[in-house]
Design a protein around this nucleic acid. Structure first.
Length: 366
DNA sequence: AAGTCGGGGCC
DNA sequence: GGCCCAGACTT
């Protein structure tokens, strides 16, 4: 906490703000959430952008706003449709929290996104970054919005050597931004820091020769811009073996299952699957029995149609994919349904399931 | 403080 | 293959 305060004194704050904001106004990308300052749209964009690249978000954002143009539209929507709008984007709890928070805004705040740090940070899924982003961008309130870009940029500008992977580090950067932020235009200031991080002050090989704040940058001055930020690597993934089955009844309907409301891929749909704890010891007979214990009608595994590997942040699924049949006397429920391939398009599936659908269609071509 | 939670793009 | 990305939440 001492070092960066000392380095802050080396900065001409007004010149820094001016150089940064002027550059931003010239060079900023034309993004769909920058067309106005609707707090709801800013909010949606910030949730989507968490751990997700701008280019990935753009089409999702446009469709989401088409489907749910206002807070009230999202508040009253079916959760299945909300998840469908998020299908393929990942971190699905983001959108379930968003809908929950939007419902709270509808009921508790008369449909108006609150504009105080305490109220907005109390909303589900709105952490320190998102709170600051909405307050500054939608309401022009000078609050820091410290994301990965901002930590990288500020660590270089102020030559801060704390490990940005540690959760305690964020406070250091928030404190620095509070000193640096423009009170005339907090929105442009915060967005400019992030835009600079995305376009110029990139993780590897930053484009310092094009940087509008190079003259203020202590890392550049010291020649250590490629050493910063300090970020320790995270733990590696673990492997999980699964067997999954695409089971068709006599009417060519497929059995699908809704995942539990908590944990990985919560409330998304999937094909029935079981974990294989001892891959070398379990034969097809045992796997078949494992499937059978999920259901109370006879199923039959016909053959293996392929194998899929799917990587998450913290684990890897290795899935042996079977095709098979199920008796159509099967009793459907809230979490087990028989659907046609056409009807299946209305349900939200994780990408791993979409890979299996593709596999199945390829197998049918043969 | 460390784990959980997705998926894709880039090197 | 590993790293990163406009992070938040749980334990």
């Amino acid at each position: 906490m001492i070092i960066e305060l000392k380095n802050l004194e080396k900065i001409n704050i007004y010149a820094f703000q001016n150089d940064l904001i002027s550059w931003f106004k010239q060079e900023q990308r034309d993004l769909p959430w920058r067309k106005n300052q609707d707090p709801y749209k800013i909010w949606v964009s910030e949730i989507m952008l968490q751990q997700t690249r701008v280019d990935t978000v753009i089409p999702y954002f446009n469709r989401f706003i088409e489907w749910f143009p206002t807070i009230e539209d999202l508040a009253k929507a079916e959760e299945d449709k909300v998840l469908k709008a998020w299908e393929g984007l990942g971190y699905y709890s983001r959108v379930r929290n968003l809908q929950s928070a939007v419902q709270e805004v509808s009921e508790k705040y008369n449909g108006e996104v609150p504009n105080t740090p305490e109220e907005i940070a109390g909303l589900k899924g709105v952490g320190p970054y998102t709170a600051g982003a909405i307050l500054s961008i939608a309401y022009g309130i000078p609050e820091p919005a410290v994301d990965g870009n901002v930590m990288r940029v500020i660590s270089r500008v102020l030559s801060i050597w704390d490990d940005i992977a540690k959760s305690s580090s964020r406070k250091i950067f928030e404190k620095a931004v509070r000193q640096l932020i423009s009170h005339d235009d907090p929105s442009s200031f915060n967005q400019a820091l992030m835009e600079l991080g995305a376009l110029i002050c990139t993780p590897t090989s930053p484009a310092c020769l094009l940087c509008p704040v190079r003259d203020h940058c202590q890392a550049f001055d010291e020649g250590v811009q490629n050493e910063l930020p300090i970020k320790t690597k995270k733990t590696k993934t673990r492997d999980v073996q699964l067997a999954a089955a695409i089971l068709l009844d006599e009417n060519k309907k497929v059995l699908i299952h809704k995942r539990p409301s908590t944990g990985l891929l919560a409330n998304l749909w999937e094909f029935p699957n079981v974990e294989i704890h001892h891959p070398l010891q379990e034969d097809r007979e045992q796997i078949s029995e494992s499937f059978q214990s999920l259901l109370d009608v006879n199923i039959k595994l016909e053959r293996i149609i392929g194998q899929i590997q799917h990587t998450f942040s913290h684990l890897v699924w290795n899935i042996m994919v079977y095709s098979g049949t199920i008796n159509s006397s099967f009793q459907e429920s809230e979490e087990w349904k028989l659907v046609s391939f056409e009807e299946m398009k209305e349900f939200a599936f994780p990408v791993s399931s979409q890979k299996m659908i593709k596999l199945f269609h390829e197998y049918q071509m043969e």
